[in-house]
């Protein structure tokens, strides 16, 4: 009966939209074979390490569940959930309006929040900037540190590559409709960005909170430094959700695993890994 309902939703989706969901590849309850329930989780490389820890912790509690986590990026995560090629999709950003339009059946479960810090080379004598200034710097309109109250010197912008969840979250939260300057040095990972900022004079970039260390200088935004505390009090503004996406309301093992994550034990792991619990 339950399967019938799911199939009905599939068919309804198919007739309305054409491309969302494909009939016949299981239900949102995971795939069961010989007593072991398998849950496939695909998507954001930012959420991936966290999801792996959460799956290990859960498998210790319920040995009949096997969670397989693989990467691919946030867009792949949402797409996999919508097309139902995975039980759960991971996304390290808000789900886009267009993605919901393409597949209104997807359900979003926020499991944690992550801040994005704006960091500069340690020699920079500017301690904080405003959102407007950040937008100006990253769009290439502000090109000298003296324009934001520092000692004169060229600003070199570094950024993640197109398609990165961190970049698209930063674009949503800070850039509005402005585009990140084409002159930006692009590096394909948080680690490479950190090295670039640490070694290039006058360099500024954005980093996930998990990658902050003493080699770069975190910038306060509107007076609030990028710390977990300032995120939970709401004073640090550049925060993104870490999301799990399912096709329809989850049932069975998938629902139980998601309950575990948003419950006390799961959120303790979230906090221990440097992310902000919900």
């Amino acid at each position: 009966m339950k399967r019938n309902t799911t199939t009905m939703i599939f068919l309804a989706g198919l007739t309305l939209l054409g491309a969302c969901g494909e009939p016949g590849d299981g239900t949102t309850a995971g795939t069961e074979s010989s007593g072991i329930v398998e849950i496939s989780v695909v998507g954001s490389t930012t959420v991936q390490p966290l999801a792996e820890l959460l799956s290990e912790a859960y498998e210790a509690i319920d040995p009949n569940v096997r969670v397989t986590v693989s990467g691919g990026g946030s867009s792949v995560g949402v797409k996999s959930a919508a097309e139902h090629t995975a039980d759960i999709g991971m996304a390290s950003r808000e789900i886009k309006e267009s993605e919901i339009q393409d597949c209104p059946e997807i359900v979003i479960h926020t499991i944690a929040r992550d801040g994005i810090a704006i960091v500069a080379n340690p020699d920079i004598d500017v301690d904080g900037i405003t959102m407007e200034q950040a937008r100006g710097i990253f769009s290439g309109e502000i090109t000298d540190w003296s324009e934001v109250g520092g000692t004169a010197g060229t600003i070199t912008v570094a950024a993640r590559e197109e398609g990165s969840g961190t970049r698209s979250a930063f674009e949503d939260l800070v850039m509005d409709d402005a585009l990140i300057t084409e002159m930006a040095i692009l590096q394909p990972s948080n680690g490479a960005i950190r090295t670039t900022v640490a070694t290039t004079p006058g360099c500024i970039a954005f980093l996930s909170f998990g990658y902050l260390d003493s080699s770069t200088k975190p910038m306060a935004v509107h007076g609030a430094l990028p710390t977990a505390e300032n995120v939970s009090t709401g004073s640090y503004p550049v925060v993104r959700p870490l999301n799990m996406v399912t096709y329809g309301e989850p049932t069975g093992a998938v629902a139980e695993w998601l309950e575990f994550i948003t419950g006390e034990d799961g959120q303790a792991i979230v906090a221990a890994e440097g992310y902000i619990p919900i």
């Binding site: 490389t45 990467g71 691919g72 990026g73 946030s74 867009s75 792949v76 797409k79 590559e161 197109e162 398609g163 990165s164 692009l186 394909p188």
Partner: peptide, 9 residues
Amino acid sequence: IAVEISYAT
């Protein structure tokens, strides 16, 4: 190719 392929759809 190398920088963007892992995200591209």
